[in-house]
Design a binder for these strands. Structure first.
Lengths: 158, 158
DNA sequence: TATTGTTATACTCTATAACTATA
DNA sequence: TATAGTTATAGAGTATAACAATA
């Protein structure tokens, strides 16, 4: 039997393949989400907002009076993580926390006039960001993706 | 003019709406991705792998001899962040780093037998995870989502 | 008891600058 | 000088336990 030595030939950059991960949803989603995240961060930077604080602001504007537990639930984050977000929005006078007479444990959150103005301007910028990132996708494709995201999200508990 | 006092009525839990974020891709993707991430983490826990280390292992198995810069590029992460991942895979004897004669700066990465075995078992588990999470999506929908993720990813630099 | 908001903490992922050794 | 790998570090997101005030 002859002695064969295996020689490891490094692939050229263009030859590196990820086809074994072709059906790997997490991998594909992660890479796409990173791009979306980075572009969104740039988009929101002029408003000094991050994705989480922007989301919170929009939801408070849409649901005046909601409390932090409700907001955390809609945003799908843990309550402790919401505290710092709400703290900062309040510090910047974009929202107010009102103690309720009926239940003095909870805060009723609502936007200030400044908060509403900033939010509406930021929403326009985010529309541009969406258009930029989804430009290559057909309208049908966008709808399908949106629907799929909701279906995946809904399939959580089983 | 009569003095009207605005009373803030907190919404019931079921009434909290996020329709203002309906077309907000990042928000939808984040929520879906969180679900995928959490389920994947559970799936990979028995193998003591995380999403990043699993991805690295699969890619090294598919591209024997590639170096860390190439791997980081395919995975879309920064080189410094890859070091700890490769360190751990090497420590567990799942991969080896071979110094190349031709360029002593780079490592040629490849899986060991143990690495190949663990990877192949883990890939089967990940298939189950995919089936579980994508169960509600039609095959056409899955294809569209996969394609859309690649398109979004590709639209990065513009 | 249970719930709201809070503090403290820890782990992961991500990003950048600066270093070393090789080329 | 440029590149591969490395170290150190910092920021952001996420998750849990435990507490005070209130119901």
């Amino acid at each position: 039997m002859s002695a064969l030595k295996t020689v490891l030939v490094p692939p050229a950059d263009e030859e590196v393949s990820d086809s074994a991960l072709e059906r790997f949803l997490g991998y594909r989603m992660k890479r796409a989400f990173n791009v979306v995240q980075a572009d969104l961060a740039e988009t929101l930077k002029p408003f000094d907002l991050r994705m989480t604080s922007y989301t919170a602001l929009v939801l408070i504007m849409e649901n005046p009076g909601l409390n932090q537990s409700q907001l955390a639930a809609v945003m799908d984050i843990e309550r402790p993580n919401l505290v710092v977000i709400v703290d900062e929005l309040e510090r910047r006078d974009l929202i107010v926390r009102d103690r309720l007479e009926t239940d003095r444990r909870t805060y009723a959150l609502s936007v200030t006039l400044a908060g509403r103005r900033l939010c509406e301007t930021a929403m326009k910028a985010v529309e541009g960001h969406e258009a930029r990132l989804l430009g290559r996708l057909s309208p049908e494709m966008r709808d399908t993706v949106a629907e799929a995201m909701i279906l995946i999200r809904a399939g959580e508990a089983r």
